[in-house]
Amino acid sequence: MLGIDKQVGLIDFKTKNGSPNVVYTLVKFTEVGAEVGAQVGAEVGAEIIKHKHKQKQVGNSGELFPPDQPPKKKPPKPKVEFIPPTAEEVKEYFRDKLPDWELQADIFYNHFSGLGWKTATGAKVERWDSRANLWIIEKKQQDNGKTENQAQRQNNRDADKAAKARNLLDEYAAIEQGSNAISHQGEIPDL
């Protein structure tokens, strides 16, 4: 602390050679100002010198390629608590996105409700609408695959019918060339 005999703001009292009269005076800053200023300046200067020597130099290390600074961490995003949708919300989301949207909405809702709104791998579902979009896309892809298979099967059936029709025409032509058309009459297959 400061080695000052008188402190600013305190009351100083003096007596004169054992006299019962005491003089009280308030110590003013002007009386001790010079002494305080000198001592404070010396102590503050010493602290500044100490701190200057302890500081590290940043950015001017003299290296050609100074090491990279560690990346600043972003503050974590607040977690929003997942609230599972109602069956009605899921149906509204699926509306008109699939031909059998009501059935698919029920299947989707029951599937994830049964899993406790977790994926098949056990991860928590954070956004059910995103999962619903994936469900709809996969269902459309499955339906396109079925449609292509159905079209291919229909084309095969049409080709079979055409082949049967050609066979019937060939048989009919052979019968007409022969003399007895009634004796060669066969069973007519369904087209």
Rank of each mutant, 00 (worst) to 15 (best):
V27M: 03
V27P: 00
V27K: 00
K28H: 10
F29L: 15
T30V: 13
E31G: 05
G33R: 00
G33Q: 04
V36N: 07
V36P: 01
Q39A: 11
V40R: 02
V44Q: 02
I48Y: 07
K50P: 01
H53T: 15
K54W: 07
Q55F: 10
Q55A: 14
Q55H: 09
Q55S: 13
K56I: 14
G59Y: 00
N60W: 04
S61W: 07
S61Y: 03
S61M: 07
G62C: 02
G62A: 01
G62V: 00
L64G: 11
F65M: 06
P66N: 06
P66W: 05
P66I: 08
P66A: 10
P67K: 08
D68T: 12
P70Q: 04
P70L: 04
K74P: 04
P75Y: 07
P78G: 09
P78A: 09
P78C: 08
E81H: 05
F82P: 01
F82V: 00
P84E: 02
P85T: 03
T86C: 00
E88Q: 13
E88H: 09
V90H: 01
V90G: 03
K91V: 04
F94T: 03
R95S: 09
R95N: 06
D96E: 12
K97C: 02
L98Q: 03
P99V: 13
D100R: 08
E102W: 08
L103M: 13
A105R: 02
I107S: 09
I107H: 08
Y109C: 02
N110A: 13
N110Y: 14
N110D: 15
H111S: 09
F112T: 01
L115F: 02
W117C: 01
A120V: 11
G122Q: 00
V125H: 02
E126C: 03
R127S: 07
R127W: 04
R127F: 09
D129N: 10
D129A: 15
S130H: 11
A132P: 02
A132I: 01
W135F: 05
I137T: 12
E138R: 15
K140W: 01
D143N: 05
D143I: 08
G145L: 15
G145D: 14
G145I: 15
K146G: 02
T147Y: 14
T147E: 15
N149E: 13
Q150V: 13
Q150L: 10
Q152C: 03
Q154R: 12
N155E: 15
D158W: 07
A159Q: 11
K161S: 13
K161E: 10
K161Y: 12
A162F: 11
A165D: 13
L168G: 13
L169N: 14
L169A: 11
Y172H: 08
